[in-house]
Design a protein around this nucleic acid. Sequence first.
DNA 1: GTATTTGAAATTGTATACAAAATAGGGAAA
DNA 2: TTTCCCTATTTTGTATACAATTTCAAATAC
Lengths: 222, 222
Amino acid sequence: MLKDEQIYQKLLKAIVEHKLPPGERLPEDKLAEAFGISRTGIRKVIQRLALERFVIVEANKGAHVNRPSRQEAEEVLNSRILIEPQLIPDIVNNWTAKHAKHFYAMVDEENHADEQGWLSQSIQLTAQFHYELAAISNNSILAEFVEQLCYRSSLVLAAYGSRKSVSCDSGDHAELLTLLDARKTVQAQQWMEHHLIKVKQSISLDGNDCAQIDFQRLFSEM
Amino acid sequence: MLKDEQIYQKLLKAIVEHKLPPGERLPEDKLAEAFGISRTGIRKVIQRLALERFVIVEANKGAHVNRPSRQEAEEVLNSRILIEPQLIPDIVNNWTAKHAKHFYAMVDEENHADEQGWLSQSIQLTAQFHYELAAISNNSILAEFVEQLCYRSSLVLAAYGSRKSVSCDSGDHAELLTLLDARKTVQAQQWMEHHLIKVKQSISLDGNDCAQIDFQRLFSEM
DNA sequence: GTATTTGAAATTGTATACAAAATAGGGAAA
DNA sequence: TTTCCCTATTTTGTATACAATTTCAAATAC
């Protein structure tokens, strides 16, 4: 018997990793059966995912996985560009050796996943790096918002990104850690801004909305 | 027959204006009866309000209006201080005479409500000023987030604010409009930051969490 | 008089039933 | 063959029923 929080996490993970690709319909009975609960419980989870923009619900037509438009993709990245660098001062203030150890270990994991070509794990880890960093700031409201934006970025990256944009996002996180260790606040802020701008540019190269599932293409580059 | 969006708006308004004070329980059947629908529909609305932190739901104990802690109050204001000034450049870019007219009219309304001592309307209008301004930026994700923060600010203000903090927040919005008209971006940003810091300080004077309903006190100062 | 227990009432959690709407497929006409 | 329309099926929308839990108050014990 799974609680709805767990069902929510499982569905979110499946969406972010494109195991449920953009546009995929989410029929209530099928999901209800799959998770061994009634439609009532599933609807609650779907509504939450809809409020967080991971799925779209249309009246009388059900829910499907959101296929972010290029406009939405840019807004997500622009939001992160605006917020994440601003969190750096608080992060530096709260930064401890324990944090450093944790994040260096995470970077190692990222690099390993990258080298092995484990793309969905790579996407997951890079998002985790950013939102766990945000969580060090003293503002849980913004930290939670950034977490949501990171997950939405994963969806965006899976839809519009190339293999290169993913490693672009995960490749050099270690640089930031050295700046945080040295408490170079301004430089860390600049690093973060440039980092996110690079990611944004890597998905903005061509101007078409993705019409169909793109995870195939993404994996085919491996 | 009311749609859930309308029910949501009505409940949100009642909460923000403290017609449903912090801590007030929200029993499902009473609300269901009040709005002439079944519990199913009400639960959907309550879940949304809970995800947006206007109400708290405890398992098997139902929902009650959130009574923001001082910590939460500061985080809400800090979030706005971090975001809203950063939206100014885009707002200046998109600023038109039509916008100016609309916002000057809104300021007039605010001042009128202030003079008449219509406190809840004053609170509502000052929130509206800020989130409609944010909506002029090109980022609908951030605009929506700011809207949520403004409504949460209203709740905070009603809980912790004095009459003075309300008029502090609404009193001088006209100044910002003249800066926007003159396209003085940097000054407008500084104005916004100082403005929000003032509001934050006005609610941070004493360090106690409000233990009980404070809207009474708020009105008694009128 | 205070504290604890117990049971009835009220409230939430979950599943299901039925209504309403959309979708899909087949058949008829052009 | 293609298009259109109609019906059967599927899927969602909403209410309700029943189970599980909490709450509140009265009664008992100390």
